[in-house]
Structure formats: C-alpha cells, structure tokens
Computed example of a mutant assay.
Amino acid sequence: MARINLLPWREELREEKKKQFLTVLVGVAIIAGGLVFLAGRQVEGIIGHQIARNDYIKKEIKTLDQKIKEISALRKKREELLARMKVIQELQGTRPVIVRVFDEVARSVPDGVFFTSLSIKGNNLAVQGVAESNNRVSSLMRDFDQSDWFSSPNLQSVNKAGTRAGSDFSLTVTQVNPNQSEVVKKGGKK
C-alpha cells in the first residue's frame, strides 16, 4: 500500500478553521461591543431625557410655589381688606346710634342738672355732674329709665357741694339699642 501523509493537509485545514473561528470571534466581539455601546448611548439618552423632564418639573414646581405664595399674600390682603370693610361698616352702622344716644342724653337732662363729665366704655355710660337738688338727680334717673336708649340707671354717689348750692353726683347707665331689643324680643338674633 501506498503511504500518503494527510497530516499537513489536515493541519492546514485546522489552521484555516482556527483563523475563521478567530475572525468570527473578533467580528462577534466587535458587533457585541458595538451593541453594548449603542445600548449605553440609548440608556444615556433616556436618562438625559428623564433628567430634562425632572428639571422641567422642578422649574414648574418653583413657579407654582411662587404663585401659591402670591395667592397666600393676596388672601391675607383680602382678609385684611374685609376686616377693614367690616370695621368701616360697623362704624357707619353705629354712627346714627351714637348721635341718637347723645340726642337722648340731651332730652333726658332735666332743668337744674349740669354734666361735668360724660364717658362711654362699651355699653356703659358714666355721668358726673352737679344738680340743684337730689330731686333733680332722681328725675334724671327716671328719665334715663323711661328712655328707649338707656336702662338700669345706677347712682354711684351724691355729695353735698362745698361752696355751691346743690349736690355733686355720679351715676352709670347702660346703653341699649331699641332696634336690637325688638329683634331679640321677637326671637331673632342680635
């Protein structure tokens, strides 16, 4: 039999397959590296887009916070204005009452009685004055008691005037509003 040596041919084939394998392996590695690079770029793009969205949301939140502060300031100013308007309305509403009270005081003072001091604290009217006699003081208290604008006259003191004829007196009386009293009598609220 003839002897043929096939080893070198097989060796060359093996070397060629090894080269092809390495070429394919390098190609796959390059393609895999490219895919990893592209995937990394894609993820970075998504992250960048999300960061941009987050920044936009933070910017809008700051804008809304400023608007909320402005709204709070406007509400506070509104409450202050409403409080001022309420005070003004109360003052305008009580203006005729005060005029009526002083008119009623003038009507209630009998002849021979002179006021030296008149003060109002809340609904209490404090009167100090001089009367020709104790009967005049009694008359003044009756007039206050019969008035629709006053109730509960209370004599604090009566003193004999030193050098003058007559008596010094001090009394308090409660101011009432007859319009509110009628509402209360009918069962309504003040």
Rank of each mutant, 00 (worst) to 15 (best):
E16L: 08
E16P: 08
E16M: 07
K17T: 05
K18N: 15
K18H: 01
K19R: 09
K19T: 01
K19G: 01
K19C: 07
K19V: 02
Q20V: 13
Q20C: 12
Q20E: 12
Q20T: 03
Q20G: 02
F21A: 14
F21M: 03
L22S: 06
L22K: 15
L22V: 12
T23D: 11
T23M: 13
V24R: 13
V24K: 06
V24H: 10
V24W: 09
L25H: 03
L25K: 01
V26E: 02
V26Q: 05
V26S: 00
G27E: 01
V28K: 14
A29P: 03
I30T: 12
I31E: 00
I31K: 06
A32M: 09
G33S: 13
G33Y: 05
G33D: 07
G33W: 09
L35R: 10
V36E: 10
V36N: 08
V36T: 05
V36Q: 14
F37Q: 07
F37I: 04
L38T: 04
L38M: 09
L38I: 04
L38V: 07
A39G: 02
A39L: 12
A39C: 04
G40V: 03
G40E: 02
R41S: 04
R41W: 05
Q42R: 09
Q42K: 04
Q42E: 14
V43F: 08
V43Y: 14
V43K: 12
V43E: 07
V43P: 04
E44Q: 10
E44H: 05
G45D: 02
G45Q: 00
G45V: 05
G45M: 01
G45F: 02
G45N: 00
I46V: 08
I46M: 01
I47A: 00
I47S: 01
I47D: 06
I47Q: 06
I47N: 03
G48R: 11
G48K: 10
G48S: 15
G48F: 05
G48Y: 09
G48M: 06
H49I: 02
H49D: 04
Q50N: 09
Q50K: 13
Q50G: 02
Q50I: 06
Q50W: 14
I51N: 11
I51C: 05
I51D: 14
I51E: 15
A52M: 01
A52Q: 01
A52F: 00
A52R: 01
R53G: 06
N54E: 06
N54V: 05
N54Y: 07
D55V: 07
D55L: 07
D55P: 06
Y56K: 11
Y56E: 14
I57Q: 03
I57V: 12
K58I: 12
K58E: 07
K58C: 03
K59A: 11
K59R: 13
E60Y: 09
E60C: 04
E60A: 09
I61F: 10
I61S: 10
I61T: 08
I61Q: 04
K62R: 11
K62A: 02
K62P: 00
K62S: 09
T63M: 11
T63L: 12
T63W: 10
T63C: 02
T63F: 13
L64Q: 13
L64G: 08
D65V: 13
D65M: 10
D65E: 15
Q66Y: 12
Q66N: 14
K67S: 13
K67T: 15
K67H: 14
I68M: 07
I68C: 08
